[in-house]
Design a protein around this nucleic acid. Structure first.
Lengths: 209, 209
DNA sequence: TCCGAAATTATACACTTGATTAATTACTGC
DNA sequence: GCAGTAATTAATCAAGTGTATAATTTCGGA
């Protein structure tokens, strides 16, 4: 009886592979389906190996959540690009309502993790960080847009508008990713841009990316 | 060795108790914590009994999800009350961003269940029904509001506005329920009403409940 | 080329889970 | 009051879980 062959990998590669396998498992089978054995199988590895790179399964799942969220925010942030604040905000909105940010797989993973936040302090902390990062990004952009238009607003006003815009983007993201409606016939980007302009008191015709 | 005493209950009462115990378990311990034993304990009953009222655990969880969603929609709908459409819409919005609809426990349960929707067809169907019911309610109210104001809109226009308003309400509901911000200092109802009015092209001063 | 350290596998363990079944109890109709 | 029925308990089972550990293999450095 011969053992299966294997080849060594660096710590970074193995951790990445294990995290990727975890996210795949969560996306397809839900959090309950992301067992140690399932993850190991998808990573082409033996269950016992996981414990060499992560103290326990809880750490692995938390690490997966952390990279998932930071990748998600990075993808949205990448949509901002360069240029005037208004263009960057429009880019962020476009990125938020189109793939790969807005898509079924992303929503599935997000949903699975979000369900653990309330009863798991570690996951709650990971969530809080990521959420705040996105919220701060939106708030900062709104402030810059107003300043750019020569109509600077109070910090409180900007804060409230950030709350509302953030809520709208979250909601649209969920709706679109869920795919309940037939969004293929709707120009979701246009809808998102128009409603954002309306909420911010900007002429929609003046708000494009 | 004497057995523990018990008393019989009607099928309806036992089912309600078991569903309530399931929702309590999910709210406090997450879906993973809602084991057959935990639910039975909270219902003051023995694990084996569950199988007399629900074919299996999957059915119990699905039933719990169904009553949770229909109760949630009923609570929101109750905020509508009577009167002109604009008042009813304002009532729905108020109800959506205040307790008991918007609160931590409700969000926890929602989040836990939503995570199963993608990988569990039964849960997906339960979700779809409830989601559509709320969306239809919002869309119908918007249509009535426009008709009432003497500015009837096309079905497509109403549909798009419903998508946006629904997204805003979902997002606000999540933000508020999550409690990340210090919403106690903010008048969330006023914020929600104002942004809704803005999105619908109504004078905010003219939109109260 | 070969040795030693480190990575990986294989196996096993203790525990929890959902499910099953027989024994017991409470209640209903007579 | 009593018998029969149906609800409930108690005890058990097999499967799956995360974890621990010893045996094996790989691979870089002498």
């Amino acid at each position: 009886m011969t053992r299966r062959t294997f080849h060594r990998e660096t710590e970074a590669v193995r951790q990445n592979d294990l995290i990727a396998a975890t996210l795949d498992s969560v996306a397809e089978l839900g959090l309950a389906g992301a067992t140690v054995r399932e993850v190991a199988f998808r990573a082409g590895v033996t269950p016992g190996l996981i414990r060499r790179y992560f103290d326990n399964k809880e750490r692995l799942v938390a690490a997966a959540y952390r990279t998932f969220i930071s990748d998600l925010i990075a993808a949205a942030e990448a949509g901002c690009g360069e240029g005037p604040a208004q263009t960057r905000l429009a880019g962020l909105i476009r990125a938020s309502v189109t793939a790969p940010v807005a898509d079924g797989r992303t929503l599935s993973i997000w949903a699975a993790f979000i369900g653990t936040v309330h009863s798991d302090p570690v996951m709650a902390e990971v969530h809080r960080e990521g959420y705040q990062a996105f919220r701060d990004l939106v708030e900062r952009l709104i402030g810059e847009v107003f300043a750019e238009r020569g109509t600077p607003a109070s910090a409180q006003d900007i804060h409230q508008r950030a709350i509302v815009l953030n809520a709208l983007l979250d909601g649209l993201w969920i709706e679109i990713s869920m795919g309940g409606d037939d969004f293929s016939r709707l120009n979701v980007v246009q809808i998102a841009l128009n409603s954002t302009a309306t909420l911010l008191g900007i002429d929609p015709a003046d708000f494009k990316d």
